[in-house]
Simulated scan of single mutants.
Amino acid sequence: MANPENDDFLDDVDAAEAETYADDLEEFTDEALELDELKAERDELKDKWMRAMAEAENARKRADKQRREAEMYGGSKLARDLLPVYDNMVRALDAAGEKTEENSALIEGVELTMRELLNTFKKHGIEPISPEVGDKFDPNIHEAMFEAPVPGTKAGEIIQVSAEGFWLSDRLLRPAQVGVSSMPAS
């Protein structure tokens, strides 16, 4: 036979254990939620860190590229400003004509100065584009100053060179200025 006092005691013990289990379960659930929140925060911070590292690497690469370009092309403005000096020396030599006793020192001086300027250009990666009469016109490196029908030529041939062009490393600094034949096809 069951003792009613024992049943009340068991009910009290079961209720106390159940309450303890409920408290433990609630605490466990809170800890699990907190752990999930911490994991989510960790993942978010890791993602932000990875993005920041990638952005820093991209910034470093951009800076390296800009530095290399500045080294290669930084003097392009100065070089463009010096090209008319070269052109004027070429014109001076053309105007001087044949070398005579009277003008030989002047011509030699201009030639020497021009050679020194070309050596300086070469040292800094500036190379002349020197088309010849009869070469095919290339719009990528030549600038057509005029077109004229010249017998004995084909359309698109260079008939006159007004000014040499120049490369700065792999970039066109100035196109060669040329006259082009517009002779119609026979």
Rank of each mutant, 00 (worst) to 15 (best):
M1V: 09
M1A: 12
M1Y: 12
D7I: 14
F9W: 11
F9A: 15
D12Y: 06
V13K: 01
E19T: 06
E19L: 10
T20D: 02
T20P: 03
Y21D: 05
D24Y: 09
L25E: 10
E27C: 08
T29E: 15
T29H: 13
L35V: 14
E37V: 06
E41C: 01
R42D: 05
R42E: 10
E44G: 01
E44C: 02
L45W: 13
K46C: 01
K46W: 00
D47M: 00
W49H: 05
M50R: 08
A52I: 04
E55D: 15
A56N: 09
N58A: 15
N58Y: 07
R60D: 05
K61C: 07
K61F: 10
A63F: 11
D64K: 09
Q66L: 07
R68D: 08
E69I: 11
E69H: 07
A70Q: 15
A70L: 13
G74T: 09
G75S: 10
L78Y: 11
A79C: 10
D81H: 06
L83E: 05
V85K: 07
D87V: 00
D87S: 02
V90K: 10
L93R: 00
D94G: 03
G97Q: 08
E98K: 13
E98H: 12
E98C: 09
E98W: 03
E98M: 08
K99D: 12
E102D: 14
E102I: 06
L106F: 15
E108D: 15
G109F: 08
M114G: 12
L117I: 01
N119F: 01
N119D: 05
T120E: 08
F121K: 02
K122A: 15
K122L: 05
H124T: 04
G125P: 13
G125D: 14
E127V: 02
I129K: 06
I129R: 06
S130A: 07
E132N: 05
V133N: 01
K136N: 10
F137L: 09
F137H: 03
P139K: 08
P139F: 01
N140F: 09
I141R: 02
M145L: 12
E147S: 10
E147I: 01
P149N: 11
P149H: 08
P149I: 11
P151Q: 01
G152C: 07
G156Q: 05
E157P: 04
S162A: 14
S162N: 15
W167H: 14
D170H: 07
D170A: 02
R171L: 15
L172Y: 06
L173T: 03
L173Y: 12
Q177E: 02
S181M: 00
S181F: 07
S181I: 02
S182E: 04
